[in-house]
Every structure is written in C-alpha cells, then in structure tokens.
Amino acid sequence: MNTVSNISLSVLLSVFALLRSEGNLFIPLQAIDRSSTNSIVLTDIGEFGLLRNERPGIPAHYHTGIDIKRPSGNYINEPIFSIMEGVIISKRTDGPYAQLIIEHQDERGKFWTLYEHIAGIEVELYQPVTPDRPIARFMNTMELDKYGWQFDHFHFEVLKVAPIPLQKDRTKPERHFSSYTLVCYTREDLRKYFHHPLEFLSERL
C-alpha cells in the first residue's frame, strides 16, 4: 500500500471540490488545496487539547480531537472524506452523534480515525474506503435545525491505540467500538491515546 502518498487532507478540508446541488446536478465551485493544513478553520472551542468544562453528566476533560468548520456555504451536501485508505470498523447513525471509526495501516503501524457529528453516511461496516470518495457529509440545514446549530462542524480524532470494544447493543448494531473521548482527564492521558490531528497530518503529507 502506498500509504504516505495516499494520505490526504480531504477529511479536514472536507471537499475534493466544493459542490453545489441543483436538483440532481452537482456543479464544482472551486478546488481546495489538500496539501496543507493552512485552510482548516476550527470552531471557537475546537482545538486539540483544550480543557472542556464540566457539564451535567460529563466531567471536565481534554478535547481529544479537532472540531472543523464546514469550508463553504454549502448546507446541502458538503462531503467528508477519509484521510487515507482504510476499513470501516464501527458505524453509529443515531442523530447528532453519528460516527464512523476507520482502521488504517501504514509503514509505522496501525492507527484509527474517528469522524463524529456527521450525516448522510455513505459507507457500510467493514467496507474498504479511499480518500477520493466521500464517507459522509456535514449536517444540512434541516438536521441542524433539529439537533442544534452547535453541531455545525465535525469532530475528528486520530487514535494511537485501538478503540474500546463495545458490548452488542440492539439499538446500535453496527457500533462496535468507542473512543477515549471522555476519559482524558490529564494531558498525559491525552497524549497516551491520541495524536494531535494537525501535527499528524502535516508529518505524513
């Protein structure tokens, strides 16, 4: 597998080309530079390692990924891509916490990426994926009106260690794993389980 050359920033910049939907017609608006992290815009509290305040039922913890704003005004079908070749190992489709986890292998070993607060999932469990075809999209206007506009981004993580196996749940039959999102109470925990996403991608471009 030509893994290093296959790694792409498409998941972060979110588009191979920005698209606009007009009925069934998709019109490319502009190409995105996928060779740099410079175009990535995070939410106000979307930085990696930011200490998130305690809230009901959730203790204070360090932010384990980055929250990426949509790169355009496309509120219909703004796509999200895998950063490189991999296999879907977990799929969750329930509302605003819809999530995919992908297992990857390169010359340095295995790692895992997570994509959360997504919609319109286009892949199946155990399906191989490539960085040139969408795996999902940002939430559209109707979904944001339903779930809340605080989800006008997607959460992206790069795990150093295998995600946590879950017991079978009939309500989420394809959700086989979870991340360490809410167990990083120290910076040591954070660095034990996660790569800094922007540093990780910059090193492997």
Rank of each mutant, 00 (worst) to 15 (best):
V158N: 03
T3P: 07
Y185R: 14
I88H: 00
I7V: 14
R108G: 02
V158W: 04
S10I: 04
T141W: 04
R137Q: 14
H155T: 04
S82I: 02
R20L: 06
G49S: 08
K146L: 13
T181F: 12
H195Q: 11
E22F: 10
E188K: 12
P173M: 10
L42K: 09
P197M: 11
R108T: 08
F151N: 04
G120L: 01
R187M: 14
L18I: 14
Q30N: 09
W112I: 06
R70Y: 05
D67I: 04
T43W: 02
L125C: 01
E47S: 15
I121Q: 00
F194P: 06
P197T: 08
S8K: 14
I118V: 13
A119M: 03
F194N: 07
H153G: 00
L19E: 13
G46R: 01
T141H: 11
Q127F: 08
E122W: 00
P71S: 13
S72D: 14
I66G: 10
G57E: 13
H153F: 08
Q127E: 15
S90N: 07
L205D: 05
S35V: 03
S90F: 07
F177W: 13
F48Y: 15
V11W: 12
F16S: 15
P59R: 15
W112M: 09
F200H: 14
L182R: 12
W149I: 01
S5D: 13
P96M: 05
T64P: 07
L114Q: 12
Y147W: 12
H63V: 04
G109W: 07
K172V: 01
F81E: 03
H117Q: 05
R92A: 04
D145F: 07
V15R: 13
L12R: 07
R108M: 10
Q105H: 14
W112K: 10
Y147L: 00
F177I: 03
Q99S: 13
E199Q: 09
A136M: 00
A98F: 00
G23P: 08
Q105P: 01
E122F: 00
L182T: 14
L50A: 10
L159E: 10
K192L: 12
K146I: 02
E203N: 15
T3Q: 07
M84G: 15
G148Q: 01
T130I: 13
I32L: 11
E47F: 10
G65A: 10
T181G: 06
L201H: 06
L190Y: 03
K110R: 15
I80T: 01
I102Y: 00
K69H: 05
G109E: 06
R175N: 14
P163G: 11
N74E: 11
G120K: 02
L159K: 08
H63L: 07
G109F: 09
P163V: 09
N38L: 11
F156T: 02
V15D: 12
G109P: 10
A60W: 08
E107C: 02
L25V: 15
L159T: 07
L166P: 09
L205Y: 08
D67E: 11
E103K: 15
I102V: 14
H117Y: 10
T186Y: 10
L144F: 05
Y185F: 15
